[in-house]
Nucleic acid binder design. Structure first.
Lengths: 348, 348
DNA sequence: TTGTAGGCGTTATCAG
DNA sequence: CTGATAACGCCTACAA
């Protein structure tokens, strides 16, 4: 809990007429440049002047104007954040993590949606550049690596959902393959051998990684991979529902389903329910992401926890480090299994 | 050092080096002020100059710098949006509506979270003002009306979740009372007479309105209002779950539950499930909001549809109108009932 | 109708 | 170390 107990001195809270840097300079009896230098730590200034300025700042309740800063080539104190849908239940938590870690640092995030569309993301990029953001956080998306690398020449970038190496850029990847493997292993350990997999959108790299994890787990358990058990989804509820219906209609036997995300798992669950198949009694189900809502599904959904909130925090922290010239070294937590009530031992 | 070298105008679409208004002016053979005037429609300019400028803009791929605009006192083309939690499943849709309607208009929203906390919202306000947003959209929250009215002197404001009248301010309210009434009536028409109500957070005005609707419906049906059937929740899943447990433990009889929002309904549903009470066979359940996920609950949740996405669109549209000097006249759609599978006729 | 000259609040580049 | 003096890119009087 941050209490931000930084109330400016006396009548400063009035904040009415804007206080400018120049006013501070006059009040402190120094030049504007000196004030600026103190504010930005751009150069060393004598202690007495520094004190005088600090006091003047307190007294007047001055706070630098980010817009003017932007124009003058300084820092805007704003970071562009390209998410893919502003209302995504998954990225939502990441945005919160970003917001919360930037706030105490005085930075404000600028959220824009890329809609999983490279062209749209490029537009976001231009918009953000025109607004002089100090840095950029890209939550996955489809921008080509080299576009990102090129952009990183202008401002620091933190990207998630991929691993790449470029100057002034830090990437944060989550081990989707491992997550997929863990989920599948869980089902296998429960005695399931006919495990269906609902994929995410074809173009999503993480979906294919999760599929790879599924295959790896199968192979490790010497279960033959059967393409007929793989059905295409698109990462949202209806697609999960439809996928299961197709699966059912195909008459392919299965005793468990691994959905590449929780939203599809929810859809799958409903499809099963409609056909009078009970979860987990008749078929076990596991999702991926651990959305807040998954805990309250009926039954509560077993899933792979993905640390979206922490991911946001880490991305923001890394950005802060980049901004201050340090090399970030954070690492995304490993996926881990959350066993709830949608999966259980297979009894033939 | 910049030698003021003109761009040879050809590779303009490259958008590389920033194109300034001054460059456009030179290209078109007019003065910067003329270009500005054309851009902002500030004054009448001769057709030929206008054409020349338009062409120059096309050719150079010019687009005005919002930061410079902000500093110079013009429009930043950005609108502050105070939402309450950036990852709220309910407001998420509204944000999307806002984003989508602003985009084609060239405005970009600045999303900040107020956390249902007046002090935090005031900080957001200051932050947004310092960033020279052209307008402000406030999604409910707890800011006092007069604070809003005062702020509206500086910039147009659109508020949701309340009805108030002030110059340069437009308010959009949803009929929560009616919604609550409709939900309760639905249950009553199904034959239920012992209907529990799970409230939202105490301080939320919409929660008490929904409760009022509940009471009104009861009264209209000549059912005595019983305070013991009202349990306190806090608008999130766990609180709904806990509320139902308390209700069950109180041994108070009931055959249906109306939860003041879908999230609590989900929690309630799980609590019922844990006690082996089936929805809707043993108890009918209805929520409020119609979250995207509610359609995929088990069973799919009956609820009151609240047009969050449209609300966002309407708020943004109204802002656009305010910005162009028109008086908004939009009105929020009325609540309506969505009957799904969590409610059914009572059979004693 | 159109151009010129300031100025918006900071930072950066020079001299001292 | 510190202080003038330009920018930054645009808008808005004021003049012409």
């Amino acid at each position: 809990m941050k209490t931000n107990s930084k109330q400016p001195a006396s009548a400063a809270h009035q904040t009415k007429g804007k206080v400018t840097l120049e006013m501070v300079a006059i009040e402190a009896g120094v030049s504007p440049s000196t004030v600026s230098r103190i504010l930005n730590g751009t150069a060393i200034v004598s202690d007495d002047k520094k004190n005088a300025v600090d006091q003047a700042i307190q007294k007047l309740g001055f706070s630098p104007n980010p817009v003017a800063r932007g124009l003058a080539g300084g820092r805007t104190m704003s970071i562009g954040v390209i998410t893919q849908a502003i209302d995504s239940p998954f990225y939502g938590a990441a945005l919160r993590g970003i917001e919360e870690t930037f706030e105490p640092a005085g930075y404000s995030p600028l959220f824009v949606s890329g809609h999983w569309n490279a062209a749209a993301e490029v537009r976001c990029l231009d918009m953000l550049k025109s607004r002089y953001v100090d840095g950029l956080i890209v939550l996955t998306g489809r921008l080509p690596n080299d576009t990102l690398a090129r952009f990183a020449q202008h401002m620091p970038i933190v990207v998630t959902g991929r691993t790449m190496d470029a100057p002034n850029l830090f990437s944060l990847n989550f081990d989707n393959m491992l997550g997929g493997k863990i989920a599948t292993q869980h089902l296998i350990q429960l005695g399931h051998r006919q495990i269906a997999f609902i994929t995410g959108s074809k173009e999503h790299p993480d979906s294919v990684e999760r599929l790879n994890g599924y295959k790896a787990a199968l192979e490790a358990a010497q279960i033959r991979f059967d393409p007929k058990l793989v059905v295409q989804g698109e990462y949202h509820e209806v697609s999960g529902l439809l996928a299961v219906e197709r699966l059912l209609d195909s008459n392919k036997q299965f005793t468990a389903i691994f959905a590449a995300n929780d939203q599809m798992a929810m859809g799958a669950s409903l499809a099963l329910h409609r056909r009078s198949l009970r979860v987990p009694d008749d078929v076990s189900l596991i999702g991926f992401d651990d959305l807040p809502a998954s805990m309250f599904g009926i039954p509560p959904l077993s899933t792979i926890h993905q640390p979206a909130f922490e991911l946001g925090q880490i991305a923001a922290t890394s950005m802060l480090q980049l901004l201050s010239g340090k090399q970030p070294d954070a690492v995304v937590p490993e996926p881990h299994l959350i066993v709830r009530e949608s999966s259980r031992r297979f009894r033939g």
